[in-house]
């Protein structure tokens, strides 16, 4: 067990999430640097404890309940929210334009118009997106994508 291995374990040791082995104890008794580092890590953890967080306020539940109700009440109109997604808004717009064109085309009496219009509505994105939304996943997906992006960043190497 070398110094680096031990230092990596120090946060967990100090937080009580890892148990010190006899070997580790022995190292700390013989290695001054590690012993000093250990003391500092411990002090750092104690210092970090000063940053206390507040308890949830008495209004937390009330407020959450209200927000849930609000959402439940507006659920029938929930489809409006889809317009917040640009891709969907475009898809739906295409669908609407297509519909209008379709009906106009129908009034025209020109039969050749119909397949063309269907082809516009077809791109499938609107329908496909709507189906996806049925799964109700989108709320999470958008955010996970953000997190995924983060992981691509080579931030790991920024701190020597």
């Amino acid at each position: 067990m070398n110094c680096n291995e031990i230092r990596e374990r120090m946060p967990d040791l100090v937080l009580g999430m890892d148990a010190a082995t006899p070997e580790l104890h022995q190292h700390l008794q013989t290695c001054r640097e590690c012993a000093a580092r250990m003391a500092e890590v411990r002090q750092t953890m104690v210092l970090l404890d000063e940053w206390a967080a507040p308890e949830p306020s008495p209004y937390f539940d009330v407020r959450l309940r209200a927000r849930l109700r609000e959402e439940a009440a507006s659920a029938p109109a929930g489809w409006m929210q889809w317009f917040r997604k640009p891709a969907l808004a475009v898809s739906l717009a295409v669908l609407m334009v297509a519909s209008v064109t379709f009906f106009r085309g129908g009034n025209d009496g020109r039969s050749g118009n119909v397949p063309e219009v269907l082809a516009i509505a077809e791109p499938g994105s609107a329908v496909g997106d709507l189906q996806n939304l049925d799964k109700n996943h989108e709320l999470l997906y958008s955010d996970f994508d953000v997190l995924d992006e983060l992981q691509v960043q080579p931030e790991v190497n920024q701190n020597p």
Partner: peptide
């Protein structure tokens, strides 16, 4: 389990305070 074996190195402080 996870915190059952507070090592002798663990801080005395209430690390679970939160």
């Amino acid at each position: 389990g996870v915190v059952s074996h507070m090592s002798s190195l663990a801080v005395e402080r209430d690390v679970l305070g939160m």
